[in-house]
Nucleic acid binder design. Structure first.
Lengths: 293, 293
DNA sequence: CACCGGGCATCACGAATGCTTATGCCCGGC
DNA sequence: GCCGGGCATAAGCATTCGTGATGCCCGGTG
């Protein structure tokens, strides 16, 4: 199971074509065909159906493994490269949208910053592979609990901020006047599914477990990143939204009610490649220091 | 960064000798030397000092990555092999010592079982690499929270049992009469460090975070797996122990006081390779069903 | 101080692997 | 029924990889 073979296989599966994969990888079609054949012979299993080209069940499974493996391989290479490379003067930050609040923005150096907004689950990978020098991720967790992040590579995570969570609902909603709301009170509600702008509802099940977390029914899916829009959608009755309290207020027609049970917070963490910690100087260290203080 | 090269490098680093590694791997010393040289050339960094043979800082870092990579590679191969292999009639269970309580033992089939006790952190790897068909791990977590396990490979974890935690202290201890104790009340205490027999204190920091979890001072380290011995040590004043409540009682001279804050439980989970789930029959499915019911 | 021996590096050669070009085969469209 | 796109297979050639032999460095020893 040579990584080269895996890389080829992943490309073929993604493009659903041997020839296209060959073009993308700079091989001939013949080589790609031989790569896949070698993998199938090695594992003793067919991995792809031909005509149409699609992964078999075993192939699906291999895709999961291969993705993680190749990512980790890239991460390892990037990490080791950092040992050799001269320290740079620029700072490359990858952040999930909700991780960018006043506190984190204020810590950015005045010059030489590239800031990239990414989906939550791609931030750790960006830091691990060296695409970013530092990452900012947000998510929900029990108070002072760390976030649950995939361990692509050894990453150092440090707490940057924690804020209470609020449920955003229309001002006319029966619960709008409350000073706090329990998730159990809302089991039958419809929610807004907003992976980029909102707090990830899916994480609730993972973090909180238990009966309260299961079965969020979603009414509308919003793929943008703007929390005001999300709150406005909630005000309009398209469904409830879960947001950090500071981001939930000030939208006309919407009421933000703090979530009191389960006791969860919106948390932002700084992500650094664990190896990069040792550097005491440089823009990364500077950024990290300002976030910590 | 060919896995073969990594495997060789890891062996050299572990044995601190090129020649020994060559013998172990069935290569010549010359090949091993070339492998390491190829890696160093590829990364542009020295990985090992010669005479004595020891990893450089960069080499240390590579060891971490290589270990995880090779483990994941083995896991992938084992997982795919399960697709091809005929279902077997025997059941191979890997379990951490505290995961073996009456409830889990009762679920074992009457015949054809191999039960292996392993350190907590090696159970997921055993399941992922196919060394075991199923795993039982224990640890501490917030109620109904899943355990935090390393994700070597996609493993399916299901709750098997949860019990309250108890602090074991000498019957003469001032807190011995209490009906419940807070961890904060014990910040200055000395603890027994018993990674195999007790609940892992180190996890407290990870699970609970916050100030209460940091800085456990340990008085004595016990490397055995017997909880009675651990409780007896606690009774003798060698330090406090943290155990599941059912395992903590009935030792003369020792008092078991339930831990009431932070709200944590001792949890046991069943670990299966995610791919093996689909089988509806066979000893693995049977075991899983009996544990779930 | 010179000798000796263990252990890693280097060199040269033969075998095996991997990629390319060329060709064959299968299936779907016209 | 013919044509064409796309994957499989065959043969040839370049590269890579592992071996055996040799060289070099260092530490121990009389």
């Amino acid at each position: 199971m040579d990584p080269h073979l895996l890389r080829t296989y992943v490309a073929v599966a993604r493009l659903a074509s041997f020839s296209d994969a060959a073009r993308e990888l700079g091989y001939t079609q013949s080589a790609v065909s031989q790569h896949v054949a070698a993998l199938e012979a090695d594992l003793g299993l067919p991995l792809l159906t031909r005509r149409p080209v699609a992964p078999t069940p075993a192939g699906e499974r291999l895709l999961e493994h291969a993705g993680a493996l190749l990512l980790r391989l890239d991460a390892a290479r990037a990490d080791l490269d950092r040992f050799a490379a001269a320290p740079r003067a620029t700072l490359n930050v990858a952040a999930s949208p909700l991780a960018l609040h006043p506190r984190t923005l204020a810590a950015l150096p005045a010059t030489g910053v590239t800031l990239r907004a990414l989906p939550r689950d791609r931030v750790p990978a960006a830091v691990a592979t060296g695409d970013a020098d530092a990452g900012l991720v947000d998510g929900i967790a029990a108070p002072s609990d760390p976030l649950r992040l995939p361990d692509i590579a050894p990453l150092a995570a440090t707490r940057v901020a924690e804020e209470p969570l609020a449920v955003v609902l229309p001002a006319t909603h029966p619960l709008a006047g409350r000073t706090g709301v329990r998730l159990d009170d809302l089991v039958d509600a419809r929610w807004l599914d907003a992976p980029a702008a909102g707090v990830p509802l899916g994480e609730l099940r993972a973090v909180h477990g238990g009966p309260a977390g299961r079965g969020f029914r979603t009414a509308l899916r919003y793929e943008g990143t703007d929390t005001r829009t999300l709150a406005a959608l909630a005000a309009d009755g398209h469904g409830l939204a879960l947001l950090p309290l500071p981001a939930a207020g000030g939208v006309p027609g919407a009421a933000a009610v703090p979530l009191v049970a389960p006791r969860l917070v919106h948390r932002t963490e700084l992500l650094l490649a664990a190896g990069a910690r040792r550097e005491a100087a440089g823009p990364v260290a500077e950024f990290s220091r300002r976030l910590r203080s």
